[in-house]
Simulated assay, not measured.
Amino acid sequence: MKSGSEGDVEIRNIYCVGRNYADHAKELGNDIPEAPMLFMKPTHALVHGAKKTLDLPADAGELHYETELVVLFKEAYSPEKTLQEMIGQAAVGIDFTLRDRQEKLKQKRHPWLTAKGFKYSAAVGPFFPFDEKQWQTTAFRMEKNGEIVQEGSPGQMIFSLRELVDFTGPLLGIGPGDLLYTGTPEGVGKVEKGDKLALYYNNQKAGTFWIETT
């Protein structure tokens, strides 16, 4: 699947990391993981661009946003390669979650796919060049209807980007065109029809999404 007009990148796999910020795990009443928690989204979940309207489910309980830094791989994984050699670009994205459905699935110990993998549930703004030296201090945030609701930085992550890549690569494989959502900080919340979600990457505009529901 093509990621959109910004670079016309062929997206292959969408890997996501759960509970990678301690305060986010606590706000949802979850334990802090001892190893990275991975899940995936189908490629049809992806929507990429600077300005997009998202048509999301309205009849499946509360719909929540989870703002995250996302990296795009340009080379296949190897433990000998640096992050700079493997990762070409970074962006701010939103992992949309049907929270009520997810809670029911968790209670039954079932996979989260139907709560995480619905169409347009993986929104990604425009890509920026990845800089490994500056990564740890990268700042990102989301404003909902003009109010800051989430902000974070890789320095707050439980598992660093290197740890995430070294965990994911040997188990699942990482190659050119793969995306990795690196986890969300505290402040996740509900979205409703008409909401405007504006993303920022180091204080630069990094995508705007409007919520439509059906």
Rank of each mutant, 00 (worst) to 15 (best):
V191C: 03
N145E: 10
R12I: 02
E147Q: 15
A22G: 05
L180V: 00
Y200P: 01
D178V: 12
F73H: 12
S160L: 03
K104C: 07
R101V: 15
A123I: 07
L199M: 08
I158M: 11
D59L: 10
E132P: 09
W210N: 11
T182S: 00
E75R: 11
G187E: 03
I87P: 04
A22I: 01
G177N: 00
S160C: 00
Y21S: 09
E66Q: 10
V149T: 13
R109A: 15
Y21T: 01
S3I: 02
V165Q: 06
I11L: 14
T168K: 01
G29R: 08
K26D: 12
V188C: 11
K81E: 15
A123L: 08
D23Y: 02
G169K: 08
Y201S: 02
E68A: 07
Y21R: 09
L197N: 06
K196L: 15
G152L: 02
D166K: 10
L63C: 05
G169N: 11
D31Q: 13
A122M: 02
I87D: 02
G189L: 03
G125F: 04
T213G: 11
P42G: 01
L105K: 07
A91I: 03
A35Q: 13
W135K: 09
H64A: 09
H44E: 12
I32Q: 05
G93K: 12
E103D: 15
K133W: 09
Q136K: 01
K26P: 08
Y201R: 03
A115C: 00
E10V: 10
G152K: 06
K2V: 14
N13H: 10
G152F: 02
E163R: 00
L72K: 10
R12S: 09
E27A: 14
S3K: 10
M37Q: 12
Y15P: 09
T114W: 04
F159H: 13
G187M: 03
V9K: 03
F130P: 05
M142W: 07
V191I: 07
V92C: 02
S5W: 14
E62P: 01
Q84S: 09
K144Y: 11
A123Q: 14
H24I: 04
